[in-house]
Amino acid sequence: MTIAQAYAHAEGITRTEARNFYYGIRLLPPAKRKGLCALYALARRIDDIGDDDAPLAQKTAALAAVRKQLSDIDASADPVLVAVADTARRYPVPLEAFEELIDGVEMDLSGATYETFDDLRVYCRCVAGSIGRLCLSIFGTGTDPRAPLYADQLGIALQQTNILRDIREDLLLGRVYLPTAELAERGVRLQLDAQGALDDPDARLASYIEFAAARAEHWYELGLRLVPELDQRSSACCAAMAGIYHHLLVRIRANPTQVYDRRLSLPALEKGRVALTALGRAVLPV
C-alpha cells in the first residue's frame, strides 16, 4: 500500500465514523486534513477496542498490540499506522498521547469509577485531553507556550459533554463516570424506570446535570483560549469541532431530561451551520 492509499484509507474511516469531528476536519487544507484524519483513525481504533463485545482478555491483548506497534511504528504495514507514521514525520505528533489514550481505555476495561471530579479529570485527560494535544500538533501551536494546556482543557470540556450526554447509555453498559461523591452529596441514585429511561422522580438528577454542565462550560472557556492562537483554517476547524459539542452542552444544560431516554445529537443542518459560522469567523476580517 502506498502512503497516498494509506491516507485515503484513514480519511475514509474518519468520514464514516467521525460524525461530529469531520465537520471541522474538512475545513482544514488538504495536507493538515490528511494528517488529522490519520490521527483520528488510530484514536478511533483504540476506542473501538474498548467498546468491542470481545472478551476482556482479548481486548487487553489488542491494546497491548497497539502499544507495541507504536513503539516501532515505522516498521508497520498497517495502512492506518503507515499514515500516522508519515504524519509524525511531517508534524510534531506526540505519539505518547496515544499511549495515554490506551491508558484511559484500560480504565474503562477495569471498571474504574471516580469518586471526585479530580479523579474524573485524570480519565478525561487520558481519553480526550490526549486528542486535543494530538490535534494541536497538526494545527500548530502559535506563540503562546500554554497552547498545549488549552488543547488539553478543551478536550476535557468535550469529554464532560460526552459523559453528560451518555449517562443512560453508559449505565446500560454498567459504566458510571459521574463522580460518586457528588452524586451521594446530592442524593442522586442512577437507575432506570420501567420504560428504560433514567429515573428521576424528585429532579435531583436534573439539578445535578445542570451543575455539572455549568462546570463543563467553564472548561470550554478555558480551552477555547486556544482558538486565537491558531492559523485561520486551523482555528475554524477547532472552533467547529468544539462548537458542535458546546451546542450539545447548551441543550443539555437547558433541559437535562433530554438525555433521560435517548442519545442526544444535533441535526446535520445545525452541525453544518456551526462549521460554516466557524469558517466565516476565521477567514473574514474582524
Rank of each mutant, 00 (worst) to 15 (best):
L248H: 04
R26Q: 13
A75Y: 00
A8T: 09
A212P: 04
E169G: 07
V127T: 01
P228C: 01
P145N: 08
P92W: 09
D103L: 05
A278R: 03
A64E: 14
P79N: 09
V93D: 01
A54P: 08
A4F: 00
V105S: 08
L264K: 06
Y123S: 04
A112D: 03
G104M: 04
A64Y: 01
T87D: 04
A282N: 05
E96D: 15
Q69W: 10
G129N: 07
D78G: 10
E17Y: 15
H247D: 14
K32S: 11
V250C: 02
P145S: 05
V283A: 06
C238W: 08
R281S: 08
D47L: 12
D118P: 13
H247P: 00
A43E: 05
A236I: 02
E96R: 14
H9Q: 13
A239I: 05
L164Q: 02
I13H: 00
Y208Q: 11
A254G: 12
A54K: 09
L42F: 02
D51W: 08
P179K: 08
D152K: 03
T161D: 06
T161L: 03
D74I: 11
Y150H: 07
D144A: 03
E217L: 10
L164I: 05
D152L: 06
A97W: 08
V274M: 07
G129M: 06
T141V: 13
Q195D: 14
L230R: 10
R225M: 12
D144G: 06
G272T: 06
E100F: 15
D103Y: 03
E100M: 15
P145W: 11
L63C: 04
P30W: 11
T143Q: 14
V227H: 14
G140S: 04
P148G: 00
L192G: 07
L173G: 14
R175C: 00
E221C: 08
L172K: 15
D78Q: 12
G12E: 10
I252W: 08
E106D: 08
D78C: 10
A194W: 04
L120T: 06
L42S: 00
F21N: 13
A112Q: 12
V283K: 02
P148D: 04
V274L: 10
L198G: 03
T161S: 05
L136N: 02
S207M: 12
L136Q: 01
A65E: 13
G111E: 13
S71P: 01
R225W: 06
